[in-house]
């Protein structure tokens, strides 16, 4: 079970890091590497999208390998994270629309919030069953 788990974790790690790398290339490549060449930009974006889909599939594969308690812990964490992301995200967007915050509501902030929220709820849920 452990060997199979480690294999899946490694696969997910590889797809995640390559996704981050291709995202960085698609973001900064047009400006710093290929001088805004449209074909190369579209190609980089498509590669990044395909990589992202493979990352999602690897994540699903790992999730399906979890046992019943692990699934429960992760599902509860995902439910709280999803709820908080919708509620806090819309509040954040509203604050931005009404100019009540001194900066723009960037998607990056929301992605960071999702990550922190998921890790925190996962940590709390894992402690509950220790």
């Amino acid at each position: 079970m452990k060997i199979e788990r480690n294999k899946r974790v490694k696969r997910l790690a590889v797809w995640t890091w390559t996704w981050v790398a291709t995202l960085a290339i698609a973001t900064f490549g047009p400006q710093f590497i290929w001088d805004n060449h449209t074909f190369l930009t579209v190609f980089a974006i498509i590669v990044n999208l395909a990589n992202g889909i493979l990352m999602i599939l690897a994540n699903r594969d790992l999730f399906n390998h979890f046992d019943e308690l692990e699934k429960k812990v992760h599902l509860e964490s995902m439910a709280i994270t999803l709820g908080l992301t919708v509620v806090v995200g819309l509040t954040f967007s509203l604050l931005d629309q009404k100019d009540l915050i001194p900066f723009d509501a960037e998607i990056g902030i929301l992605v960071g919030f999702i990550g922190i929220c998921y890790m925190t709820t996962l940590f709390i849920n894992m402690r509950r069953f220790k």
């Binding site: 046992d67 019943e68 308690l69 692990e70 069953f129 220790k130």
Partner: peptide, 22 residues
């Protein structure tokens, strides 16, 4: 855990009656 096919943490949670198995 190995025989049943779950993690050691799951066995621990079941033994401590914090989690009901399927």
């Amino acid at each position: 855990a190995e025989v049943i096919g779950v993690s050691r943490q799951t066995i621990n949670a079941i033994e401590k009656e914090k989690f009901d198995p399927s």
